[in-house]
Design a protein around this nucleic acid. Sequence first.
DNA 1: GGGTGCATGTAATGGGTTACATGATTCT
DNA 2: AGAATCATGTAACCCATTACATGCACCC
Lengths: 193, 193
Amino acid sequence: MRQRTSSSAQALLGLLTIEPMSGYDLRQTIEASIGHMWNESYGQIYPNLRRLAAAGLVQRKTDAKKGKRDRHVYSITRKGRARLAEWLALPAQPEVPRNEMLLKLFFGAQVAPEVSIAHVERMAEQHRAVLDKFKRVEREEIDQHQQHPDAPFWRMAVRYGQMEMEIHLRWAEETLAGLRKLAKKKRGAGLRA
Amino acid sequence: MRQRTSSSAQALLGLLTIEPMSGYDLRQTIEASIGHMWNESYGQIYPNLRRLAAAGLVQRKTDAKKGKRDRHVYSITRKGRARLAEWLALPAQPEVPRNEMLLKLFFGAQVAPEVSIAHVERMAEQHRAVLDKFKRVEREEIDQHQQHPDAPFWRMAVRYGQMEMEIHLRWAEETLAGLRKLAKKKRGAGLRA
DNA sequence: GGGTGCATGTAATGGGTTACATGATTCT
DNA sequence: AGAATCATGTAACCCATTACATGCACCC
């Protein structure tokens, strides 16, 4: 048997320990809270929920509201909790790095410095927005649930993201300064030529 | 027609601006230099080189050494350079986050604190090794080629990795302290119970 | 003789996103 | 009337890793 490398199903299982949710809710929760460390699309969520239900790791209840479309709410079973705990104990496999922005900067000598500057500026803008979101999440989602047993772990995870974004922004500043110096030098050389 | 979102081919094109290389060389170079920001397996490299050659973006030369197996050395063409420059100008698409270690920490309340501690320690160990590698790369690959037009960009990219690893290590320290405190508290509660 | 490194490639498999299909309700 | 949001799901496609196949040279 081949080892399953995917953690999509386990991520869903984990989220369902917080509270029972529908596929739609799961997507919403991911976007709002763990979007920066984990992503999951509907095309993964729905089939996985079906499989989890078939394996008895989650239980599906159909919430029929008159007029409205049926909602399928899933809750984790004891068996599901056990499976989750097993997976949690396994060492995490490291991410495969695929940072397109860095790669483009790496080949920056092939294009005008302005191109690289634009890449770094765009990235800084995005990361500034993400940092703001983290701060909001910490205030609104975590500080609100001080007594919740999950809260300390949520805070640690968010802190990771915050620190990372802050250092990226520092790097961006440094790098932009360097790139602008390079651009000036190049313009000077161009005029002299 | 559907737009190709993959940047694998362009990454190879970029590497071939440094010098002509074989598929094997490319893999080796990736591992040694840009492995932390980009990864590419043989299963991607060889088919992509074939396609690039068919499109006239690279040129293949067979290097037949007597006795030894043939080496296929690829060099980038002017057309290839033009294509690379086009791609470099395009905004980079952000990474899809999939940090399994963070995800597991996020669900840390479901398991003993020791499990989370082990995750963070393992990660710190790995990142310490990567940081060392970055420092080595900076010394051995970049400082050696001061006058190379690519050098400033290489340095910026490596610096990104260094800063990131350093901040992760700082986070790991902080987090381990927090986790150990949690573990102690939990043991205390367990004894009282 | 067997392991390791150089070297090229393909096939199987799996993982994941995007686009599509459907449809009700609510807001503008 | 039409856009946005809630809501569920499937199919097509693409991307990427892994395992496998092959084979020479060199060293122990």
